[in-house]
Amino acid sequence: MNGPYLSAALGVCWRYLHNLYTRPSMFIPSLVFPLFFLAAFAGGLSVVGDAPNFGYYDFTAFQFCFILIQASTLAGVFAGFSIASDFEQGMGRRMMMATAHRSSIVLGYTLGAAARLAVTWTVVTGAALLGGMEVAGGGLDLAGIYSIALLSNIAALLFAAGIALRFRSIQAGPLMQLPVFIILFLAPVYVPQELLTGWIEPTASVNPITALLNAARSLMAGEPTGVLTAFVVVLGMIALMAVWALSGMRKAETAG
């Protein structure tokens, strides 16, 4: 990765963050969304934590892990919206024209999507702590949780970028958001995986998000299990989605 390549990526990243944080209409919904889920799940559904065999030490912490991964993942998707919008309105063409290596554009949005997590995480974590969340894990465990969230953000951004670069229209927004939303909610969101029954149980067992969620919850509890598997899964998703995003860039180049 040479100087001009990184320079171009940082330029794309800077503009993305600049526009995000100077336009409340773009920024605030992405914060309200996880806060709403946190209030609804951790607050409104807290009685679920009293269910027999629930077996987790704190329902707010249990839900926080999901909300953190969900917020991080959707932050990646929202960055995909920006890519689609930029290509629809001509800025994509400016970037394609000005950068020697166009994969730097995807890297720029990836950095931007990751950087925006700093604010999202601060707000969501702050709200959860204010809501009485107990953190049983140590510093390294927490680093593990946030690393999983960061990597899921990157995977989601690359997925959304692949869609955005193929369609180059904000009308493709639902195609970016819906699959991610569905896969998130087909994981054990409200109760541990062991308590799932019916069709959701086998679905959740093959859902890659389940591995991330279980690992994050185990780290939060200070009893890490399946963490290596979670990292292998999320890194595999990133590798797959990187190929998807870069082939999307080829499509965009061919379309002109």
């Binding site: 320079s7 171009a8 330029g11 503009r15 001509g90 800025m91 400016r94 970037m95």
Partner: peptide, 28 residues
């Protein structure tokens, strides 16, 4: 260098910010 038919500019950036973006994209 190219100035295409539809000036692809970001309405939310100033001219100076456009320059900042363009110089970064071009790797100056």
């Amino acid at each position: 260098g190219a100035a295409l038919q539809e000036a692809a500019l970001d309405p939310h950036l100033t001219a100076r910010e456009h320059m900042r973006l363009q110089t970064a994209l071009q790797g100056l």
